[in-house]
Nucleic acid binder design. Structure first.
Lengths: 171, 171
DNA sequence: ATCAAATCGGACCTTTTTGTCTTTTTTTGG
DNA sequence: CCAAAAAAAGACAAAAAGGTCCGATTTGAT
C-alpha cells in the first residue's frame, strides 16, 4: 500500500533550501545526542587506561570542549560515566559496553519523548490517542526499540565498516 | 540481547528535569511537522467543500494563524495543497488522502535528513559509515518507512480511536 | 601547606525554531 | 473600476538549542 503520490519526475519537489522553507530539515537526533554517543564510544574504546580528561575527549572526538563538559556532566548524572576531579581526574565509563545501549546514552542527554497525551489537549483523546498521534507515537516506539537493541559494543567494531572516530588510512 | 544496563530500581535515573539537564527532551518530530499534519488531516476531512481560509483552519486545528500561513505556504510549494488568493480563496488538498503519506507531509515542511556522510568528515567514512552512524541512519530509515507506509486516509478514521481534531463527547 | 591540574557550575552569547505583525499583491463580486 | 477578502512576503520578537567563558572547587604531588 501507499506508494507515495509524489513522483520523482514530478520536479522541484522541495524548492532548493533557503528560498522559503521554514526549516532546513530535522535531524531527529539532536547534535547533543550525537556528541554524547561519540564520547561514550571513544571512552569504551579506551576503557582500560583510567580516567580521561575533557580536553582529550574533545580533541579526539572533535566536539567543542566547553560544550562537551556539559554533556559529560549529564552522562555522569545518569551514572553512565564516573567523573573524578583534580589531577589525574577525568571521565570513565561505568557500565560494560555490552550492557550499555545507545538508548541509555541518548536518554541521558536528550530523552526521547513519547506522545502520551493529546497535543491539542482534547479531553477525549487523553486516554486513547487519535490515529494521527498514535501513528507518530508508534514511530517513536520504533526508534526507542532500535536504539535499545544496539549496545555500545555492537557499535564499537564491525568488520564490514570503518572504526568509529578513526581515519582508516593515513593521508 | 541487550537488556538495558540501567534498572528501574536503580533510582533517580535522570534527575528531575530543570536541574542541570541540557535539554528537556527531543520530540523527534518538530512542532512544525505536527502542525502540518493536523492541517492536512483536517483539510482531508473537509475536501468536498471547496477552498478553506487560513483563519478557519487555524481556529479548528488550534494552530497560531500567522505561523500556520507559513506552513500552508510550504505545503503549497510541495504541491500538497493548492492555494487560491482573493475572495472565496483558501487552501485545498490536491492529492487523494489514499495516496498522500505522512512522510510526504512531514518532508514538505521539515524534511527528514538521513545521515549520508560522516558527521566528523573523516574521509574514510564517506563511502561507508562507521557502525555508530550507520546504526543511527538505520533508525532514520525505520522512521521514514513507517511514515511512508501511513496514508492520510489511514489516519483520518480508526474505529478503535477518537476522530482526529474532534472532541468525541460534548461537555 | 601550597600549588597546579582538572572538573564543576553558572553566566553569558549565538543560532535556530517558533510565533507575531504589518504591508503588499492577487483575486473576486458588485 | 472599486472594495473586500485572502494569500504572499518579509520584518520583527520570543523561546529553545547550541556553544563559550570564567571563577569556584576538588584533588594529587611536591
Amino acid at each position: 500500500m501507499s506508494q507515495s503520490w509524489l513522483r520523482a519526475d514530478r520536479a522541484p519537489r522541495y524548492p532548493e533550501a533557503g528560498s522559503n522553507c521554514i526549516r532546513k530539515g530535522s535531524t531527529v537526533f539532536s547534535q547533543t545526542a550525537e556528541y554524547a554517543l561519540r564520547a561514550v564510544v571513544w571512552l569504551a574504546q579506551h576503557h582500560q587506561t583510567g580516567p580521561v580528561g575533557n580536553r582529550t575527549i574533545a580533541e579526539v572526538t572533535r566536539i567543542p570542549s566547553s560544550y562537551l563538559s556539559k554533556i559529560l556532566h549529564d552522562l555522569a548524572q545518569a551514572e553512565i560515566l564516573r567523573s573524578r576531579r583534580g589531577v589525574g581526574g577525568g571521565f570513565q565509563l561505568i557500565p560494560s559496553p555490552d550492557e550499555l545501549t545507545i538508548l541509555d546514552v541518548v536518554n541521558a542527554v536528550d530523552p526521547i519523548q513519547r506522545i502520551t497525551g493529546c497535543p491539542l489537549k482534547l479531553k477525549s483523546h487523553c486516554d486513547q490517542l487519535c490515529p494521527v498521534h498514535a501513528r507518530l507515537d508508534y514511530t517513536l516506539g520504533l526508534v526507542e526499540d532500535a536504539l535499545a537493541n544496539s549496545t555500545i559494543r555492537e557499535v564499537m567494531f564491525d568488520p564490514a565498516r570503518p572504526l568509529p572516530l578513526r581515519e582508516t588510512s593515513e593521508n
